[in-house]
Deep mutational scan, measured.
Amino acid sequence: KVTYHVPNEEFARKLYKKAVDANLNVEIRVENGQFIIHIE
Score class of each variant (00 low, 15 high):
Lys1Asp: 09
Lys1Thr: 09
Lys1Gln: 07
Lys1His: 12
Lys1Glu: 07
Lys1Tyr: 13
Val2Ser: 08
Val2Gly: 09
Thr3Leu: 09
Thr3Ala: 06
Thr3His: 12
Thr3Asn: 06
Tyr4His: 10
Tyr4Arg: 11
Tyr4Thr: 07
Tyr4Met: 09
Tyr4Gln: 06
Tyr4Asn: 06
His5Tyr: 14
His5Val: 15
His5Cys: 15
His5Ile: 15
His5Pro: 07
His5Phe: 12
Pro7Leu: 14
Pro7Met: 14
Pro7Gln: 13
Pro7Ile: 14
Pro7Gly: 13
Pro7Glu: 14
Pro7Ala: 14
Asn8Glu: 07
Asn8Asp: 12
Asn8Val: 06
Asn8His: 04
Asn8Gln: 03
Glu9Trp: 13
Glu9Met: 06
Glu10Ala: 07
Glu10Ile: 06
Glu10Arg: 03
Glu10Cys: 15
Phe11Met: 14
Phe11Tyr: 12
Phe11Cys: 15
Ala12Arg: 04
Ala12Phe: 12
Ala12Ile: 10
Ala12Val: 08
Ala12Gly: 04
Ala12Trp: 13
Ala12Gln: 04
Arg13Asn: 11
Arg13Met: 13
Arg13Pro: 02
Arg13Ile: 08
Lys14Val: 10
Lys14Asp: 12
Lys14Trp: 14
Lys14Pro: 03
Lys14Gln: 11
Leu15Glu: 03
Leu15Val: 07
Leu15Phe: 05
Leu15Lys: 03
Leu15Ala: 03
Tyr16Leu: 09
Tyr16Phe: 08
Tyr16Arg: 04
Tyr16Cys: 12
Lys17Trp: 09
Lys17Ile: 11
Lys17Met: 06
Lys17Leu: 09
Lys18Met: 14
Lys18Gly: 06
Lys18Glu: 13
Lys18Ser: 11
Ala19Val: 06
Ala19His: 04
Val20Ala: 05
Asp21Ala: 10
Asp21His: 07
Asp21Ile: 09
Ala22His: 08
Ala22Ile: 14
Ala22Ser: 07
Asn23Lys: 10
Leu24Asn: 01
Leu24Glu: 01
Leu24Val: 03
Leu24Ala: 02
Leu24Tyr: 07
Leu24Met: 06
Asn25Gly: 06
Asn25Gln: 12
Asn25Arg: 12
Asn25His: 14
Val26Gly: 01
Val26Glu: 00
Val26Phe: 06
Val26Ala: 07
Val26Gln: 00
Val26Trp: 02
Val26Tyr: 01
Glu27Phe: 11
Glu27Asp: 05
Glu27Cys: 12
Ile28Ser: 00
Arg29Gly: 02
Arg29Glu: 05
Arg29Trp: 13
Val30Ala: 05
Val30Trp: 12
Val30Asn: 04
Val30Gln: 07
Val30Cys: 14
Val30Arg: 05
Glu31Arg: 06
Glu31Trp: 07
Glu31Asn: 05
Glu31Lys: 05
Asn32Asp: 09
Asn32Val: 05
Gly33Asn: 04
Gly33Lys: 02
Gln34Val: 15
Gln34Ala: 09
Gln34Ser: 11
Phe35Ser: 01
Phe35Tyr: 10
Phe35Cys: 04
Phe35Thr: 02
Phe35Trp: 15
Phe35Met: 04
Ile36Asn: 00
Ile36Val: 09
Ile36Ser: 04
Ile36Met: 04
Ile36Arg: 02
Ile36Phe: 08
Ile37Cys: 01
Ile37Pro: 00
His38Cys: 12
His38Ser: 15
His38Ala: 13
His38Thr: 15
Ile39Gln: 01
Ile39Gly: 00
Glu40Val: 12
